[in-house]
Write a protein that binds this DNA or RNA. Structure first.
Lengths: 328, 328
DNA sequence: CTGAAAGCGCTTACAG
DNA sequence: CTGAAAGCGCTTACAG
């Protein structure tokens, strides 16, 4: 039944001790070139790979990264997942995918991550309590917020520069001659939604312009219904700044349904620049989140913390750029 | 540093042996109610959870399911991922997410799965060699193909009934008066693409109709370019049967670009019924893959095989249904 | 039903 | 640089 090859088998074939086999595979230890070669040859012949569990039992560490996502309906997140999977694979790490159904990371999810002694945790579109943060800190498990941040920087987070992005979007729309605008937010308790409104609001105020805010939920259907509501209120704004692309698609479809022409009658700007934004049906003007860079920075910090835990907190913000298409 | 509570600590507090603690938590062993209560109370007090690695080292099993996906650009797969994550979470299993960049599962991916001694493996949009199949069989790791199947049934697979689906689609289009049709396939080596053509072809032949096949790649951009090519050839068919929804969107966008009206001039039928298919811009007639049922059947078989490995092979096919919308 | 003990396959001081 | 040995935290025959 237990037909696995273990370090002892390799040692016997190579004519060295089991410790030496371990040293060759664990790395960081000094082994003579001769021993290394013998071990590697024997391992190759037998098809040996170290048992991850025995290894983890000793080191109390795994080569698993916990990736927490709240949902994958917004295509932005599958794209993020893909990039993380690729980046960590190159580094020899695997992804434990944790889907949480609530806004806040649940106790059971945390227990899973803790049970598997993940090397680190990345949380994308969910929030977490102080207690949870403390749990990870206590276990010296690096924790990163991706595309979310918290005000008091006791966590490391990686976002695009949402404030600067929304300022530039506001300036862009003003320059296009828009005066009465609408901001459609995602869930109001998300840092992204808050910051995107903040920068937008700042610039409008400076230009003595006002705007109306409508709360939505970062989903297509949410954007669609919110836009319909606005249209039915009878007061079409000169531009919609929508907190993410997928909602912006909903807005465009609602406008289309009422034959309200874009960009002549009203304009629409999204956020994310997901793949679909460039599809001909939408061809949406939007803000590009530099996913690859964001992922790189996240991975870089993660590896450094795995190497030597510091718990250093910082809000990293990466510049994106406006992608101008046909909706403005 | 090692601040974890272990079974010994619990045993001491409960006043029993470490073996008894283990028996309470592992289950299946007979423990007196009195002992069980004492142990559970002590564990609760100390916040004990068994160390998964020590457990796995002994049992050679984990509570991890390997989920292999080739890409997540097609929204069908994130949806599948979500459903699997939820289903397995309820059963106390976690998901190791393996992204493979090639059509065929790579050696390194297999090694990862084997190294972590996953309890089972689900492969979605990738193929695998006979050698890999054998590797899993040798280790008695249940392996399931999801939305793919192989001809010689040495594997367990779960699909929708693609043959029946495409037959019904053909009949539906014939009934609508379509005569010269086009089938746009995904990658030609995928079972889904082959079977969807087969059923379609069968029914057309029976009705003495012919069709043209164009090979594409299951991507939006692939569908878009293929449709453009067809349009440029100057011979617009009366209907397009497109092997998945996301390609169908590309087809619709190309038709729109050339102002070819749907469904009056030509009709389009997709496959999958992903969320976006019901969006007003597309409102695509398509075949609904019963994801939930497919996931349920997969999970059911997986759990049975984890309980007691049989290696039983079967091609399970689940009936879907035609969703009629505005493109036909 | 319960406890003492062996053992899973590793890493890592400790001597040499 | 290398080997013998302890120990990580469990499960599981084995006795009682």
């Amino acid at each position: 039944m237990r037909n696995e090859i273990n370090a002892k088998d390799v040692a016997k074939l190579a004519g060295v001790s089991q410790s030496s086999v371990s040293r060759v595979f664990f790395g960081g230890a000094s082994v003579s070139e001769k021993t290394r070669k013998k071990v590697l040859a024997a391992a190759e012949e037998l098809g040996y790979t170290p048992n991850e569990f025995a290894r983890s039992l000793i080191t109390n560490k795994t080569r698993i990264i916990g990736l927490v996502m709240k949902g994958v309906k917004n295509p932005f997140y599958p794209q993020v997942l893909k990039e993380f999977a690729e980046a960590f694979k190159r580094l020899g790490y695997s992804i434990l995918f944790v889907q949480t159904n609530h806004d806040e990371l649940q106790k059971e999810d945390v227990e899973t991550l803790l049970n598997y002694h993940v090397a680190g945790v990345i949380i994308t579109n969910a929030t977490l309590s102080l207690k949870v943060t403390a749990d990870f800190k206590k276990n010296k498990i690096p924790l990163i917020l991706f595309n979310r941040k918290v005000e008091q920087p006791d966590l490391f987070s990686v976002c695009t520069n949402n404030l600067e992005a929304s300022r530039q979007i506001a300036e862009f729309l003003i320059q296009k001659g828009c005066k009465d605008m609408v901001y459609i937010s995602g869930q109001r308790n998300t840092s992204t939604s808050i910051e995107r409104e903040k920068g937008f609001s700042e610039v409008l105020k400076k230009n003595q312009l006002t705007y109306r805010r409508y709360d939505s939920d970062y989903s297509y259907i949410g954007g669609y219904h919110t836009a319909k509501q606005i249209i039915n209120e009878g007061c079409i704004p000169s531009a919609f700044f929508v907190a993410n692309d997928i909602m912006a698609f909903g807005v465009l479809d609602a406008l289309h349904e009422y034959s309200i022409e874009v960009p002549s009658v009203t304009k629409v700007v999204g956020f994310d620049n997901i793949d679909m934004a460039k599809w001909p049906v939408y061809h949406l003007t939007t803000w590009e989140q530099p996913i690859s860079e964001m992922v790189d920075r996240t991975v870089e910090y993660m590896m450094a913390e795995i190497e030597e835990y510091t718990g250093r907190a910082e809000n990293v913000e990466i510049e994106g750029k406006l992608i101008e298409r046909s909706t403005t």
